[in-house]
Each structure stands twice: as structure tokens, then as C-alpha cells.
Amino acid sequence: MGGERKVYTLAEVSEHNDPKDCWLVIDGKVFNVTKFLEDHPGGDDVLLSATGKDATDDFEDVGHSSSARAMMDEFYVGDIDSSSIPSKVKYTPPKQPHYNQDKTPEFIIKLLQFLVPLLILGLAVGLRFYAKST
């Protein structure tokens, strides 16, 4: 990685996204991996799918060997302008209303919670009076 370092924006790097011209961003550095596409053990599709974004996480998740990391030096073309990479946003799931499993409207449930005990009480009292009168 010698000499003067060229700085690229993500938009500039994103233009290099096909098998004849493929650039990647890994650890803040830009790599022209076009010549390596055919030799990549994971296939060229893996590299092509990592274009146009910061591919650091993809690279790290695979667990590349130290020899693979050393090989990257020959593909280095410059650095990425970190301000051109969108920041990662933490996913926050949308707030959802209480789940009503049987889809019964809530007012009916509340009405039944009030009326059913009254009905049971009424039946108990009615049976007691019926039993006394017979």
C-alpha cells in the first residue's frame, strides 16, 4: 500500500460493480478485486454482491485467513471517504396494538366480563328460591 492515497466516495466506488470492473470497501479501504473474481474461493457472485456498500461486516463474518488478508494489499487502490457511507440505523420494530387472538371486539369482552357473573349469580338465587318453594 504505497505512495499517495486516493480518497473515493461511496458513489464513486459503487460505479465499479460488474465482472469487468469490481471494487469493494473493506475497513475503510477501497480494493479493485476485478482480477481476483475468478480465483475467489466463494465465487464471483459473493464479491459482486458486496459492491456499493461497506462490505466490512460481510468480509469479517466469513472469517478470512491471514493469508487472504495479506493478499488484499495487491488490490488496494485508495481509501473511502467515511462521510459518504450512510450510518447504520438501529432497527426499532413498530409499536403494535394489543393482540386479540380470537378477534372479538374489546367492548364485547368487557360486557361479557360484567354480565356473565351477574347471570351466574341470578341463576343461583333463582334456583334457591325455586328449591324453597317446592
Results as ranks from 00 to 15, higher is better:
66 S>I: 06
121 L>D: 00
18 D>W: 04
62 V>H: 06
87 S>I: 04
23 W>I: 01
90 K>N: 07
1 M>A: 14
67 S>M: 04
77 V>T: 08
66 S>R: 06
64 H>S: 10
118 L>Y: 04
131 A>Q: 13
120 I>C: 08
67 S>Y: 02
105 P>G: 07
38 E>P: 03
74 E>I: 11
102 D>W: 15
27 D>I: 00
51 T>N: 06
75 F>W: 08
20 K>V: 06
21 D>E: 03
119 L>Y: 12
128 R>T: 06
71 M>Q: 06
90 K>S: 01
100 N>S: 15
42 G>E: 06
15 E>C: 11
1 M>F: 13
39 D>R: 12
53 K>D: 01
9 T>N: 05
24 L>C: 01
6 K>S: 12
47 L>C: 09
49 S>C: 09
72 M>V: 07
79 D>H: 01
64 H>L: 06
22 C>L: 01
22 C>H: 01
40 H>R: 05
114 F>T: 14
74 E>A: 13
86 P>A: 10
91 Y>M: 07
4 E>P: 10
75 F>L: 08
32 N>F: 01
85 I>W: 04
121 L>F: 09
51 T>Y: 09
110 K>R: 15
98 H>E: 15
89 V>A: 13
59 F>Q: 08
74 E>V: 12
39 D>G: 01
34 T>H: 00
21 D>T: 00
119 L>Q: 09
90 K>V: 11
123 L>R: 00
84 S>V: 13
69 R>A: 09
82 S>H: 11
33 V>N: 05
89 V>F: 02
13 V>G: 05
121 L>M: 13
109 I>Q: 12
81 D>F: 05
71 M>W: 02
4 E>G: 12
117 P>E: 06
113 Q>F: 08
29 K>E: 11
58 D>S: 10
6 K>N: 09
104 T>P: 00
65 S>G: 04
86 P>H: 07
15 E>M: 14
127 L>G: 14
14 S>T: 08
21 D>A: 09
87 S>E: 15
19 P>H: 05
75 F>P: 07
30 V>S: 08
54 D>T: 08
12 E>L: 07
118 L>W: 12
99 Y>L: 15
89 V>E: 15
126 G>M: 07
97 P>F: 01
109 I>C: 12
10 L>G: 07
14 S>M: 00
62 V>F: 10
27 D>L: 02
18 D>V: 01
82 S>F: 07
42 G>N: 08
55 A>N: 03
61 D>S: 13
29 K>S: 12
93 P>F: 10
47 L>K: 08
118 L>R: 09
72 M>Y: 06
79 D>W: 00
65 S>F: 14
36 F>G: 02
83 S>F: 02
130 Y>E: 03
29 K>D: 09
25 V>F: 09
96 Q>C: 04
122 G>F: 14
125 V>C: 10
52 G>I: 12
48 L>H: 04
64 H>A: 10
21 D>S: 14
98 H>K: 15
129 F>Y: 12
112 L>R: 10
130 Y>G: 02
34 T>L: 05
115 L>R: 12
8 Y>H: 02
83 S>H: 11
21 D>C: 04
51 T>A: 07
